[in-house]
Write a protein that binds this DNA or RNA. Sequence first.
DNA 1: AATTATCATAATGTATACAATAAGGTCAAC
DNA 2: GTTGACCTTATTGTATACATTATGATAATT
Lengths: 223, 223
Amino acid sequence: MNPYEFIKDAIILGDFSPGERLTEEALASTLKVSRTPIREAIKQLETDGLITPYKRRGYIVREFSLEDIRQIYNLRALLESFGASEAALYRTSEELERMYNKNAAYEIAISKLKRSDILTIRNVQQVNQEFHEEIFKATKNEHLRTHISKVVVVPLIFRSFYWYSERMLLRSLEVHKTILKAIENQEPERAKIAMQEHIYQGRDDVLQQLNTPGIEVLKRDTQ
Amino acid sequence: MNPYEFIKDAIILGDFSPGERLTEEALASTLKVSRTPIREAIKQLETDGLITPYKRRGYIVREFSLEDIRQIYNLRALLESFGASEAALYRTSEELERMYNKNAAYEIAISKLKRSDILTIRNVQQVNQEFHEEIFKATKNEHLRTHISKVVVVPLIFRSFYWYSERMLLRSLEVHKTILKAIENQEPERAKIAMQEHIYQGRDDVLQQLNTPGIEVLKRDTQ
DNA sequence: AATTATCATAATGTATACAATAAGGTCAAC
DNA sequence: GTTGACCTTATTGTATACATTATGATAATT
């Protein structure tokens, strides 16, 4: 695996904790490559906002406050709801069909979910992401996709617990269907509002979990 | 000047034309540094979307279609109008005062404008940018600022002609005042819509110029 | 003449050595 | 005991040599 993906996954999975210091040499010897490719990965992670400079010497894994998370989710809601409305305007019937297929796959993935099986959980997560991506593809707006892909990374760190709750998953499935119907009927405003609500629900679920001290362990995916 | 800024400015000013090929070694010898810092700059320019990979060997300066420009301006409108509404909600009175000062400076800069003097033109451009930045600062949303700063670069390439037209500048000054009043009165919806309209005007001016064959030369700043 | 395989070349990918510099600790002076 | 200067050391910044690979040209074969 390339250094960028490796480090990014390590941060998302919690193998590198927020505040932990990262030095080029340590990473280089861990990944058994030279510093050059590590530097490249680090620069990219910095623009992703996953790491921040530390005292002009190296980087630390970024810590996100509740306010950070709220702001990032709000941005996500803004961008994805715009995407949904554009998709409602510009979708072709082939694209609509692909969206329906992805959401059907999502429904199946949820039904197969075993709470203790990490593989079925990852599958739900993956298929959900593919559903959202079908929508962005239908906008034909490459620049929008670039921005969304950036704003989607941080939420990944925090909502791992989300995928364990069947109640939440079934609720999001229902909202997916509302979004789909709006896109099918080419109702941009309705698609936009449904998507906005969808993201806000995710935001509030995450914030609520992070505010509940008893289930601190769920804050991070321990794999 | 560091390589990233140098290359970026060269692209914005048109010294590197769209489609032109960039190789690490050529840039390195031009800037009289080794390939290492050039590589770093190139990676960053790629995530900025200013250059794109070319046949798996190096990069070319990105060419933007009219549709690209339309999409980028629409994104800018989305993000900046959100910013204006957040600023209306969260501004302090000190921040409001700074915005007024910047817009006063903008008015002065316009009045001092000489159509042939590149320095006064750059000054108008600079002060305008500072006005917009005061608004984003007032949102206290660092993530929003990151996204806006990215979406603002491409328009810079195309709207150079804009700063030559006193009519357009006076119009945008009036809209600035509307935005300011909405932020002062803490009317987020009004601030949002005024900002949206402001960006759309800029978008349409640019697209119209690019569609007018006679003034092709104005498409790029020849400086 | 067209097509394909091979090879030379130019460009990027990677490793590593050396330079520059900031952080932190030690020692001395007050 | 506290403060400040200096020095050590850890870490990043830069240059460069070498490895790898994709491209385009050339030549050979059909």
